[in-house]
Structures are given as C-alpha cells and as structure tokens.
Design a protein around this nucleic acid. Structure first.
Length: 728
DNA sequence: ATGATGATATTTTTT
DNA sequence: ATATCATCAT
C-alpha cells in the first residue's frame, strides 16, 4: 500500500498521530495546527492502510457543520463515498441509536426532540400549572439546573438535596418536568445523550453489538465533552475500542455549558495505555500573533502546556487603539476596514470579534453609515422562527397527539377562542389524571358541564384529526403544505400588519421546499419520513444567516469565531468588565476561561490583528468607564504598536455665537471643546491624579470644566483653569 | 383578544 | 437603551 498520499503532506507530529498504533491516543492540537487534517487523515489511514472497514469507524463532533466537513474531507482522501462510515454529532448519533432501539430505550416509537425553546416553554407551563409564578424560581434557572444535572448524567433520584429546601424544590421540578416529557414522548437535547447512555448501560447485548462494531472512535473538540458524552465514549470504547481524541485544553470555552476540560487531563488515567501527541506547529498566523497568544495563555495555571510556533514571518505588530468611546472605536474600525479594502483585500477576509452580542449594534451603525457591507453571525435560525415552529407543532401533533409541547403551542394559534382559562382547565385535568393534554381536552369537551370553550376545543381536535387523515396519503412536502394551508396559519399571518406577516408566509412556503428537498437517508429503522424531518428540524436548526454572498465583513462573538480564521481580525471592547466579563472576574476559573477565549480570539488572525478598547462606553443606557483589558497588558510590549488619535493641541478658536447657537447639543459640546483648547480623547496629565483622557467638557472661559478619565483615579470633573493639566 | 403600562434584567451557544 | 414579560384595561 502506498501511504504517500496520506502521510506526505504532514509534519512529524501529525504523522506520528495519524500513523499511531491501535492504542488510545490523545492529540493536543493547538490552534491552527491542522487538527481536522489529522483527524481525517487518521480515518483515511485506518481504512486505506490498516485495512479497517469504514463500518468499524465512528467519528464524533459537536456541530453538524464539523461533521459534514469531516465526512467530506474523508471521502475526498479516500476518493470514494463512505456511506457506511458513521460521522455525526453526539446528539445526532444518540438520536440514531434511540430510533433503532426505541424499545430497549423504553421510548415510544414516534418520540420527538424538543429544542431549548420548547423546553423553556414547557417549564413555564409547568410553573403555571403548579401555581409557582410567585415562587423564587425563574424558569430559566430551573432549565439551567435540569440541563446541568442531565449533563452530569444525573436523574432526580440521584441528586442529593443536601437538606436544602431550594434544592429540594429544584429536584422536584426536574422530576415533574421529566414526567411531562416522558408522557409526551419528548426528549430534550441533554435527554438524548442521557438516554443513549442508559440504553447501553442497561442493555449489555446492545452495547456489545456496538462495541464489536466500532473498533475505532475518533473524537473532535475533546475539550468540549461533558460528563455524559465522555461516559458514553468510555462505555463504547470498553476494553478494546481505540479512542483517538483531538482537542486543545487552551480552547476550552464552554464550561458554562457543561464541557469539562478535565477529561483531557484525566485521559491517561482512564486509558492507561494511552499516549499523547502535541501539535504545536501553526500554519495560520504570523509569529508575532502566535507569540502574543502564547504570552497571554501562559498566565493560566492549569494547563497541559504547549507553545505554538511557526516557521513563517514575524509579520506586522499587533495594533492597539485606545478609543475615546464606543463610537470612536467603531469609527476607527471602519477606517481600518477601508484601508483593508483599498489594499485590495476582500472584506470577507476581515472579522470583527466582540465579547457579547450587544456590542454589535454600534459597529453595525458605523458600518451602515460607511456603506460597508457586513454580516452578523448568530441570529435566529430557520427552524427556530416562530411561524416555522408553529407549523412544526401541527406536524408533531399529526405524528403524536400526546405531544403537550406542540399541543399548547398551537391550540389557540391561529386564535380560535381557546383562552387561558380553557387551557388552564385542560392543563389541570391532565396533571390530575396523569394524561396528555390531548386526552384531557377530549375528556373535558365531552363533559356536558363544559362551557363555551368546549365547542372550540372540539373544533380544534377535529381539525387536527382531519389534517392528519387527509395528509396521510401525501408525501412529506404534501403533508407540510397541507398543514400550513389547513391549519389557518397562512390566513393568520396574512392579517399580521407590516412586512412581518409577509416574510412569515414566505418562510412557511420555504418550509415546504425544505421538506421537498429533505433527504430521508436519516429516516431509517422504521422511523416515518415525517418523524425524520421533525428530528432534522430540531437537530439542525439551519444556517444563522443564509446567502448574502456579497463580499461582507464578518461580525461575530469570539465564541462563534472558534474554529474559523481570518487574515484580518479586529477584537474590540477589550475592557476589564466587558472582556474579561464582569461576571467572570470574581473567581479564578472564570477569569481563566475568559483568557482562553482571548486566546481563541487572537489565534483567529492570520496576518493582521487589531485590539481596541474604549475609555468610555455606553452600556445599558449608562456611561461607564473602564480600564483597558488586562489581557492587552499580558501581550509583550515589543509585539504591540499603540495607535493614538493624532494629538494636536488645537488653537482656541471661538466660533461666532450665531453658529454656536444654531448647532444642536452634541455639536455644541464638541464646539466648546475646541473653544477651551482641548480635544475630546486627548491625553492629559494631572499632578495628583496622573494620566488620563478627556471624555467630556462643558462651559466656557474661566468656568470651563472637563471630564477626565484617569487611569488610576477613575473619572473626574475638573475646572480647567484650576486643574493645571498637561496636554500630552 | 389585543394593546398599553410598568417592572426587570441585560455573557457566551449547539445540539 | 432596550427587550422581554406580567398585569391590567379596553
């Protein structure tokens, strides 16, 4: 066998990993070190060189995108389609297993997946039915609690309340929530994983079958595995399965979502025969950028330890800009993007990264003004849109009447006179009799004592029955079309004012197209095509922002930038309190995770990296002042070039009074700055307070006052004629 | 059943 | 500043 095509393009470390013997292996793959390449080449190596059947291979990722890319690249390497190769997300694979083994997993055959939005609604409803709204629980917190428990693999009976009343209630809510889900055959995302784990744990025969089949397990982004995913992997690996895990402890940024980087540290304990390979050569960034990243992450204590290097060029220094405020920051960024375009680069190659989504607004305004096309990542996705979820809820009812989540969503949508009281009555009946709302509704409406609501309920139920009956013989797209027509949703949205309703109708029509184009290759093991489509909708919510294939600047959070790279990266809002975020400042582990996030951000850049921060920022409607992020200070000074606004002591010019009064308040302010001989954003030195920046000014002549944000003393108003400021 | 009012909170996101 | 949500009024 000629191994050249598989090993040739690899460096030594990559080659060691790819051609490693069949023992557990942990690959610590630094940013830009060719992680996906190693993973895919390993798969190709096993199949082509070791002669392992694709069937014996399981490749696991976190996102659908990563899974699709991995399959694509493996097939390219093998030069053939590998349909019997299992590549998928943890959730996708778990789902597949549960469909296959629904009996052993004690699930109804047509179980449905609910997303986090459904989950939250379900909890809110549960709160209502328990009259809990006045309690001290927020549904969100309970949702978080439940998911955190599930991520750890814990059922209500496993959790100790520790004698704490609040905790006891949380556990009991978890219990009630789970009962509702079980009754309706509903699985939330965490439940998929938990069930798949329990399936194997409780059915040795099933487990053995998969252990015998999957000899090699390839895992991507290993640092992001949560407890249940890791347990699942270990079960599958058993004593003989070969786990090939690729990850980077320095890029672990999802602890708040259950990810446990400790799995990386534990790897050798859990797999005593395991070895470790480190990929440290980086093919992405200039050495300046890498050195900065290395220096920043070196401040973290618990690390595996690694140092990225490149044999490429030093490149440009990292440019740091201290903006006067967030608008100045945005203006600066716009300027750099203009330069970038003028140098003949594509806008697509430039990314603006920020810590939190709220920061995008100012940037968008500035870009809009400057006519620079941009694209913001991470909006609402197709299958998450309200109208789409409404239509899907009808489809879910068609598939399974006991789906309470779907029932409540559309029972009065479009409005058909079933108000809160009626729904409440159904809910109560369902709770008291441990039955689904559909059955509760049936019972109530046949009760002669029922009031006006009963008629509407009967109408709703027969509508659903009719849709189900009529769509029975239709193909998937036909079913979807039938539902959106007959449910009255189209009519309902047509009445909605503005363009919104129109868009919604277009989206509904798009849903029919999506159904037509749905490739039911996942629909296997006796799952109906409809159930397959519904699962697909839940597991792959679709692109955040479709098309817009204009040459656009990319805006996104640093979290969503993980895994991407751009020739030009601008990280903005680098202020203590924003990044690192206020809520992470208190404990060490929080701060270290922020620092890893910073590391992720820096290592996205290929050639050019800008870091910006603002002295003053309007946040939540309040002006706040912050020091520049400590992370900037952690970058060695020799890698950094500070960019300052051109400092020029403007000569006091008095505009004519007429002109002054004509202007509005903001320009009056700016005018008065020139008036008294200072410039907003100008750096000054005070004998007592030290260095600072002028943020604001007011008044004229002897009464003129300026607001200065001092680096150590904070923000102060000073009367200019007394303050004796040195302009710098 | 829709619309106005006021209180409240406001990292990060995939599945 | 703003978005979401509950509550109350129409």
């Amino acid at each position: 066998m000629d191994v050249t095509p598989i090993l040739d393009s690899l460096n030594d470390a990559q080659r060691t990993a790819v051609a490693a013997p069949s023992e557990p292996l942990l690959v610590i793959a630094g940013a830009g070190s060719g992680k996906t390449r190693v993973l895919t080449h390993r798969a190709a190596w096993l199949i082509d060189v070791e002669g392992i059947s694709p069937q014996s291979l399981l490749a696991v990722t976190f996102t659908n995108k990563a899974a699709a890319e991995m399959r694509h690249r493996i097939e390219n390497l093998l030069n053939m389609p590998a349909s019997n190769l299992w590549v998928g997300t943890f959730h996708g694979l778990a789902h597949r297993l549960l469909r296959r083994h629904w009996r052993e997993a004690k699930l109804p055959q047509s179980f449905q997946i609910i997303d986090s939005d459904d989950q939250l609604r379900l909890l809110k409803r549960l709160f209502k039915s328990l009259n809990l709204d006045d309690s001290s629980f927020a549904p969100r917190d309970v949702q978080y609690f439940i998911n955190a428990q599930k991520d750890e693999g814990l059922r209500p009976q496993h959790i100790d309340d520790g004698g704490d009343e609040t905790r006891r209630q949380l556990i009991s809510l978890y219990q009630s929530y789970q009962e509702i889900c079980d009754r309706g055959g509903l699985l939330d995302f965490a439940e998929l994983l938990l069930r798949a784990h329990e399936l194997w744990r409780d059915n040795p025969a099933v487990l053995e079958h998969y252990q015998a089949r999957f000899r090699h397990l390839l895992v991507d982004e290993f640092q992001d595995t949560n407890a249940i995913q890791y347990a699942w992997l270990r079960l599958l690996a058993g004593k003989t399965g070969v786990l090939f895990a690729v990850g980077d402890d320095d890029q672990s940024i999802y602890r708040w979502r259950g990810a446990r980087v400790e799995h990386i540290y534990r790897f050798q304990k859990d797999f005593p025969t395991a070895s470790i390979v480190k990929l440290e050569q980086n093919y992405r960034s200039t050495s300046t950028i890498l050195n900065a990243a290395n220096a920043v992450i070196a401040n973290n204590s618990s690390r595996m330890g690694k140092n990225l290097w490149t044999d490429g060029k030093d490149g440009e220094p990292i440019r740091v800009y201290s903006a006067f405020n967030e608008r100045d920051e945005a203006e600066f960024i716009v300027g750099r993007l203009r330069d970038w375009s003028e140098q003949g680069h594509a806008r697509t190659d430039a990314a603006i990264l920020y810590r939190s989504n709220a920061q995008s607004r100012v940037l968008e305004e500035a870009l809009m003004n400057a006519r620079i096309p941009y694209r913001v990542y991470g909006g609402l996705r197709f299958f998450e849109r309200q109208e789409i979820k409404d239509a899907l809820a009808y489809l879910r009812l068609v598939s399974n009447r006991d789906d309470d989540s779907a029932f409540e969503r559309v029972v009065n949508r479009p409005t058909r006179g079933i108000g809160a009281r009626t729904v409440e009555a159904i809910r109560a009946y369902g709770r008291d009799n441990s039955c689904s709302m559909w059955r509760a509704a049936g019972a109530i409406s046949s009760d002669a004592l029922a009031g006006r609501g009963a008629k509407s309920i009967v109408a709703f139920m027969s509508l659903v029955e009719r849709i189900a009956r009529e769509s029975e013989p239709l193909d998937l797209a036909g079913k979807v079309d039938h539902v959106i027509q007959q449910s009255g949703l189209i009519e309902f949205f047509r009445k909605e004012k503005g363009e919104k309703g129109e868009t919604r109708i277009e989206n509904l029509e798009e849903l029919v197209s999506a159904a037509r184009g749905f490739n039911p290759d996942i629909a296997e093991e006796g799952m109906s095509e409809l159930d397959g489509f519904l699962a697909h909708a839940a597991l792959e919510a679709g692109e955040g922002q479709a098309d817009a294939w204009e040459d656009c600047v990319q805006l996104m959070t640093m979290h969503s930038a993980k895994g991407l790279e751009f020739p030009l990266v601008i990280m903005c809002g680098l202020e203590d309190g924003l990044f690192p975020h206020q809520r992470s400042l208190n404990d060490m582990s929080g701060l270290e995770e922020e620092r890893r996030l910073c590391y992720v951000g820096i290592t996205r850049a290929r050639q050019l990296l800008y870091l910006t921060h603002a002295e003053q920022r309007r946040l939540h409607g309040m002006d706040s002042y912050a020091q520049k992020s400590r992370f900037i200070g952690e970058i060695p000074a020799e890698l950094v070039e500070e960019i300052r606004p051109k400092v020029q002591v403007s000569r006091p010019v008095s505009p004519s009074p007429a002109l002054r009064h004509k202007s509005d308040r903001t320009s009056l302010r700016a005018g008065s700055a020139a008036d008294i001989g200072v410039r907003l954003g100008q750096r000054v030195r005070h004998a007592k307070f030290g260095d600072g920046v002028i943020l604001n000014c007011e008044g004229h002549g002897a009464h003129a006052r300026v607001e200065v944000n001092f680096e150590s003393a904070g923000s102060k108003w000073l009367v200019l004629s007394y303050a004796n400021l040195d302009l710098m």
